Every structure is written in C-alpha cells, then in structure tokens.
Amino acid sequence: MDTRQIEENIEKLISGEKDEILIKKEDFMKFREIWLNHPDKNSIIGKANHFGEVSYYYKSNE
C-alpha cells in the first residue's frame, strides 16, 4: 500500500465509506507516519490482530 492509498483509506474511514482499515505489518510504519500527522488521529483506533496486522476503526469524539 502506498502513501496515497493510505491517505484515501483514512478519509474513507472518517467519512463512513469504510468501517475499518486493515494495515499489514509491512505497511505499518507508513501508516503510522500519516496517522500521527492527521488531525483526527485520536478518533482512529487500532486493534491488534494476528501476524502483525492492525485493524483501524473510526470513533467520533462527539
């Protein structure tokens, strides 16, 4: 997954087009860099899965 795809997936997650994003182990550091700089990072919640994969969900703070 490249940076553009990660950014698009985050925006789809926030808008409700997607319920979750599955980030594979090899994409985690790219995702983390984008996530840390995102204004809604506190609403994007990760859940660890097997084999280093993480599922991210959006939980509105409102």
Rank of each mutant, 00 (worst) to 15 (best):
Y58E: 15
V54M: 13
D19N: 06
K24W: 04
K25N: 00
S60E: 05
Q5P: 05
I14D: 00
R4K: 10
I21H: 04
N42S: 02
I45K: 11
E11G: 00
P39M: 04
G52P: 01
I34R: 05
N61V: 04
E62P: 00
G52Q: 02
D2W: 01
S55N: 09
I23Q: 15
T3F: 06
L22Y: 06
Q5E: 08
V54Q: 10
I34V: 11
H50N: 11
E62T: 05
E53T: 14
K59F: 06
I6G: 02
R32F: 10
K59H: 11
L13G: 13
M29V: 10
L36I: 09
T3G: 12
D27A: 08
F31N: 10
R4I: 12
Y57C: 10
G52V: 00
K59L: 13
R32M: 09
R4D: 09
I6W: 03
I34S: 06
F51A: 03
I45H: 04
K47I: 13
I34M: 08
E11Q: 02
I23T: 11
H38K: 01
K12G: 09
R32A: 12
I6D: 05
W35N: 12
Y56T: 04
E20A: 13
T3R: 07
I6S: 04
D40K: 14
K41I: 07
F51N: 01
D2Y: 00
E33R: 10
M1Q: 15
K18S: 11
N61H: 14
K18R: 12
N37K: 02
N37Y: 10
T3A: 06
F28H: 11
G46S: 09
M1K: 08
A48D: 06
F31K: 14
I45W: 12
I10E: 10
E8M: 05
P39K: 00
R4N: 09
K30E: 02
T3M: 05
L13M: 09
I14S: 08
K18D: 15
I23M: 14
S43G: 08
N61Y: 07
S43N: 09
K12N: 00
Y58S: 15
E17R: 05
L36E: 00
N37R: 08
I6M: 03
H50V: 05
S60H: 03
G16M: 08
I6L: 12
H38I: 02
Y56G: 12
E26C: 11
R32L: 07
P39G: 02
N9Y: 06
K12T: 03
L22P: 04
N42V: 06
H50R: 02
K47L: 07
E62W: 00
K18T: 14
N9R: 09
A48Q: 01
